[in-house]
Amino acid sequence: MNCKSIVKEISNYLEEALDPSLKTSIEKHLENCEDCRVVVDTTRQTIQIFCNSEPAPLPEDTRVRLRDALFKHLNKLRTGPRV
């Protein structure tokens, strides 16, 4: 396998969605190719950093407007439309 074909399989490799023989040949390549090791490792980190990141708290004005909109509509839905 060459470096280019490793890159094409990165997602499948990281998601462990490869058949065993392909996985073995990728790992053989990784043992001998530092560049590909770095690419695989930093791609893995990229996914993990995004996946683990906590969303910021809502801006206060955004929060207030969301609550207002919900109260208005939920109460209307609960009591049914006025005739």
Binding site: E16, E27, L30, V40, D41, R44, I47
Partner: peptide
Amino acid sequence: KLNPLQPR
């Protein structure tokens, strides 16, 4: 310290 072989 690179450990790409370690499963995610």
